[in-house]
């Protein structure tokens, strides 16, 4: 009890009991120890001369990066178009794949909680755990470099994201209208299309547009592993130490991200 009576009958108040206090202290101590340990492991191979030299390096590169080479822009339009296409087509493909997965996962629509749901959940987890860049790395070795690998990488990463949010939305629907549609003698696909789907369309549209926005960002870097888009130019410019081109590419990426964020905010606002 935080409030205790002392021998002379006064009431003493402490925020926590002594046992809780000790536990908290032990928890914090463990965290600090963990940090110190991991810090030492991480930095044992660090060459501190490089680290100390970093500010000078940064100043040096900074001076080379400015001004951006604006004339390089003419070579960036095509990669930019590819980047946007990778994001858009990838999201589209992901949406098509994610909808059935979401229905198989949601407790109230899955055909079997014991057999089908765990498999669908596994699909979602695998897709979500692995970054688009890693998917791209795999796909480039299989499909060869290019936009196609990028589209599929984006799609594979997004399936889990969209399916997870969508199945959570499906589990939260109001069950009464679904019962009502079932009571009219509608078939199972009709119950899905008339009772459940209209209830999740706002969530569905919002999630898809949100993911498209994220995918635009991700698509800008997929080129680093050879999957097409503006990242290819970033990679080659970095390799040839063409710093003014790097600056321009970063500016273009930043602008694209800001525009896509604005577009997605507008669309989501219009939908809700």
């Amino acid at each position: 009890m935080p409030v205790s009576l002392s021998r002379d009958g006064d009431r003493h108040w402490k925020r926590r009991t002594s046992r809780a206090e000790w536990l908290r202290f032990a928890g914090w101590l463990a965290l600090v120890m963990l940090f110190i340990f991991t810090w030492r492991v991480m930095t044992q191979d660090t060459i501190w001369a490089f680290v100390l030299d970093a500010p000078r390096q940064a100043a040096d590169i900074g001076s080379r990066m400015w001004p951006p080479r604006w004339s390089y822009m003419s070579a960036l339009w095509k990669p930019l178009w590819d980047t946007i296409n990778m994001a858009t087509l990838g999201t589209l493909l992901a949406v098509i794949l994610a909808v059935p997965v979401a229905f198989l996962t949601a407790r109230n629509t899955t055909p079997s909680v014991v057999f089908v749901r765990p498999v669908a959940l596994l699909v979602i987890v695998s897709s979500r755990s692995i970054n688009a860049l890693i998917w791209a790395l795999l796909l480039v070795t299989i499909l060869g470099p290019g936009v196609l690998a990028g589209v599929i990488a984006i799609a594979l990463r997004s399936v889990g994201f969209i399916a997870k949010l969508l199945y959570e939305a499906i589990e939260e629907i109001n069950i009464e209208p679904v019962e009502a549609i079932r009571a009219t003698g509608a078939s199972a696909p009709q119950v899905l299309a008339w009772g459940i789907w209209p209830q999740i369309t706002p969530a569905f549209a919002g999630i898809s547009v949100f993911r498209w926005d994220i995918n635009i960002r991700e698509a800008t870097v997929l080129g680093l592993v050879g999957a097409g888009g503006i990242g290819v130019n970033l990679e080659s410019s970095m390799n040839t130490l063409a710093w003014p081109q790097v600056t321009l590419i970063l500016i273009v990426i930043l602008a694209t991200v800001i525009v896509s964020e604005w577009v997605s905010a507008k669309i989501r606002h219009a939908l809700l």
Binding site: M42, D45, T46, Q57, I61, V221, M238, L254
Partner: peptide, 24 residues
């Protein structure tokens, strides 16, 4: 927020050398 982690990592690797310190 607007720069991808990978892009930041590229720069930090250039500045701090290869290895987990740049990743950190």
């Amino acid at each position: 927020r607007s720069l991808q982690e990978v892009i930041i990592a590229i720069f930090l690797v250039v500045l701090f050398g290869f290895g987990p310190f740049a990743g950190f």
